[in-house]
Design a protein around this nucleic acid. Structure first.
Length: 181
DNA sequence: GGAACGATCTGC
DNA sequence: CAGATCGTTCCC
């Protein structure tokens, strides 16, 4: 199994996002197959980078393949994969993964609940991702990492509008695996 | 300096 | 359907 190729992530986030479906997110022995993603871009009113560079969003303006983790609603973390050329301010939000390994640990972190990683904040809780991972390179040698086990992205992913945003709410930049969701 | 608002989740 | 809960951003 190999790391995702960084060059593949330097494309436009609405192109990279569906390509990330079926890739593997790995952290501390926990493995999840990416099942739902959303694209964000600098010229996109719903993006954290829309109003330019700030302290919070600086990682999104960095190189592709790094992790952008932000804190929201006073209690939740959400994780993104930075995409595009360095400086472009784009990323793909990891909304859901299908748990493959480390289910016991994830379930414990999720306080015994059955829904392990079917939402961006649940995913972060299950994989123990918090602000300390902001800026981490997913394509380097360390952990967490992003891997390709050879499973291609789906031919016809489900497409729809992004969730939980008020601006550009009609833009269809959310993609999901077509089966079970 | 202050106020408003979240790329959410949970329990009622 | 509303509450939890606080950092970021924007406006005065």
């Amino acid at each position: 199994m190999q790391r995702v190729d960084r060059r593949a992530l330097t494309g436009d986030s609405p192109d990279v996002a569906p390509w990330l479906l079926n890739k593997l997110f790995v952290h501390g022995g926990c493995v999840g197959r990416i099942a739902e993603v959303e694209a964000y871009r600098e010229d996109d009113p719903a993006s954290h980078t829309f109003r330019g560079r700030t302290l919070r969003n600086e990682v999104m303006f960095g190189p592709a393949g790094h992790l952008y983790v932000y804190f929201t609603y006073g209690m939740h973390f959400c994780a993104n994969v930075v995409t595009g050329p360095s400086g472009s301010g784009a990323a793909v939000l990891l909304r859901a993964v299908e748990p493959i390994a480390g289910l016991e640990v994830m379930r414990h972190r999720r306080q015994g609940r059955c829904a392990l990683a079917d939402g961006p904040a649940k995913l972060c809780q299950a994989f123990a991702l918090d602000g300390s991972f902001n800026g981490h390179d997913l394509l380097g040698a360390g952990d967490p990492g992003l891997f390709d086990d050879g499973t291609p992205p789906p031919d016809s992913p489900l497409v729809g509008p992004r969730v939980g945003i008020s601006r550009a709410a009609d833009v269809p930049w959310r993609w999901r695996l077509p089966v079970a969701g």
